[in-house]
Nucleic acid binder design. Structure first.
Lengths: 224, 224
DNA sequence: TAGTGGTCTAGACCACCGG
DNA sequence: CGGTGGTCTAGACCACTAT
């Protein structure tokens, strides 16, 4: 792998260029094709290259991460302002007990509505989120959901609520098999996980959310 | 891999237990050992198991992440209060130009001191950080650094400065080969990357920092 | 259809760990 | 020392992509 990485470095292939075929690399380095494959797979995991079945291996572009700042009211609205096509598909809507809520459980209700959504930008999956809200108060939300819905916007328009962020927690996790299927990445790839609580303008807990995003697609910025 | 994952699930092995040897698994599933190895490697990347040369593969413990909150003045001090042995080893100290600073460049100086440190807890590496400060003002810092030094504490004691956080940026990246070597993880593992600016109590930019932490070891929490 | 990567069996030998 | 995982060669066949 080190030899191959060095070779790619030294040959100064620009991002997007195709590498020689695995069989050719095997000849070039006088090793078996499986050995080449193992090295290529490791480089792909490290993000140096990207391999496509039937086409070849390509030098990876440097990832560009969309920056989500904490001072905008709605992230979806922010992205749409920048000309991106943003959809949020509802993939699940269930009524759950309070014990389904991640710690710390800041919502008081015993029955909660949990919305599972997948956010896609320009057709590409970016993140999946689970949102918990009071079932008694917001039960009808699921029925009116469309891919164009922004929860922040919906709460504002339908309930007259102005949402405020209370706390946020950030961690990096490996993509599970489920994440991998939903987000189009390999299992084990880095995900940026944001958990948090939103309140209304009076500070009353409104909703908790956990968002699992592709690490190569976005980052969060907060002012303190 | 799916078969193997299901088998582990169904056999309900508790975390820490050893799986059968690769050769045994190959017999059990009637496949070649290499096929078993590929499945095990994928499970290890997904975090389900952990494999040790010469000993075997073990069901992984659920990762426990230390929570770093934004309301404490010094993270190192916080950890020590909780009885952890925290060291910060200075692995590099260089004078660099302003262009070495990551964007956005909030420090005005043309010559900056860059400190590269590795934070270890109870002997285990947790994160590596690069810190940029004014060379003119803080040049002597590198000379007095010891593994017990906390930069926040040092600035307070030696300069009478009370440090304040201005902004933070969070992203998830794959561990590079260098990260992997310094942090004891596999290349490509998820890292939680925090970049940020600290000011003095008057709001004057003091230092910028980029900290790359093992995703399985810590998480950040901020109140908004 | 030719060329690419993806998966698999077969078997050898090496490196590490613990008793 | 025996048992474990780590690396490698050899070769077959399958699946996907572009022409």
């Amino acid at each position: 792998m080190d030899d191959l990485a060095r070779w790619i470095q030294e040959s100064e292939l620009p991002p997007g260029d195709r590498l020689p075929a695995e069989a050719d690399l095997a000849l070039q380095f006088s090793v078996h094709r499986l050995t080449v494959r193992q090295a290529l797979a490791e480089l792909a995991r490290a993000g140096t290259i990207r391999t496509v079945h039937g086409r070849g291996s390509f030098v990876a572009e440097r990832p560009f991460r969309f920056r989500v700042t904490s001072d905008v009211p709605s992230i979806v609205a922010l992205m749409r302002d920048r000309g991106m096509t943003v959809t949020q598909t509802l993939v699940g809507s269930t009524v759950v007990g309070r014990d389904d809520l991640p710690e710390p459980r800041d919502l008081a209700d015993d029955k909660l509505l949990r919305l599972d959504t997948v956010l896609a930008v320009d057709g590409q999956p970016w993140s999946r989120a689970s949102t918990w809200l009071s079932q008694a108060r917001f039960g009808p939300v699921a029925a009116v959901w469309t891919p164009m819905t922004s929860l922040t916007g919906l709460l504002n328009e339908a309930y007259g609520i102005v949402v405020r962020r209370a706390w946020r927690r950030y961690s990096a996790e490996r993509a599970t098999a489920e994440d991998a299927a939903a987000l189009g990445v390999a299992a084990g790839s880095p995900l940026l996980v944001q958990a948090g609580l939103n309140t209304d303008s009076g500070g009353q807990p409104l909703l908790q959310v956990v968002r699992r995003s592709r690490g190569d697609r976005l980052e969060y910025e907060v002012s303190l």
